[in-house]
């Protein structure tokens, strides 16, 4: 059995989504740092889905979250039926050493996601986007 959360895909959903992830991280015994990184990762991808996948495409729909826990890992699954998009295909920003005056503003969220979780995957299943975030329950504070 997984814990689940389903709610309309608007930016107002971000707070409840973070609370859901925080509760799952606590239940899995993740330390503060790992919990924060997981919250940030799910928040960033959910933000992309809401703004690019739904709103900019003129679509409305839901976000559905699941939290799965086993002995080794905590897995958060985020599903939507917005525009198909695989964030793992985004190139890493190549201007992280550039002064802000010359920066482009895209790609930071996915960068933080990929660097923050132990594993990040995307699947396209039954016409839905599925973003998968995995954290190891042991050694979660190894950085």
């Amino acid at each position: 059995m997984a814990d689940t959360l389903q709610l309309p895909a608007t930016l107002d959903a971000l707070g409840p989504i973070r609370a859901f992830v925080d509760a799952a991280a606590s239940a899995a015994g993740l330390d503060h740092k790992a919990s924060y990184r997981l919250r940030l990762a799910v928040d960033e991808i959910a933000t992309n889905v809401i703004t690019h996948g739904y709103e900019e495409a003129g679509l409305r729909g839901d976000l559905e979250l699941q939290a799965w826990r086993n002995g080794e890992t905590l897995t958060i699954i985020l599903e939507d039926d917005a525009v198909p998009f695989d964030p793992t295909t985004l190139a890493e920003p190549d201007d992280l050493g550039t002064p802000l005056e010359e920066r482009a503003v895209g790609g930071l969220g996915v960068f933080l996601t990929v660097h923050g979780v132990d594993e990040f995957r995307y699947e396209r299943v039954a016409r839905r986007n599925r973003n998968i975030f995995v954290m190891h329950r042991q050694g979660a504070d190894d950085g």
Partner: peptide
């Protein structure tokens, strides 16, 4: 207690707008 990349984009915007 929490800052998403949207917060970073505010800083980029500020830096570019304010000069």
């Amino acid at each position: 207690t929490f800052m998403a990349s949207a917060g970073l984009r505010v800083l980029v915007f500020a830096k570019q707008k304010l000069g």
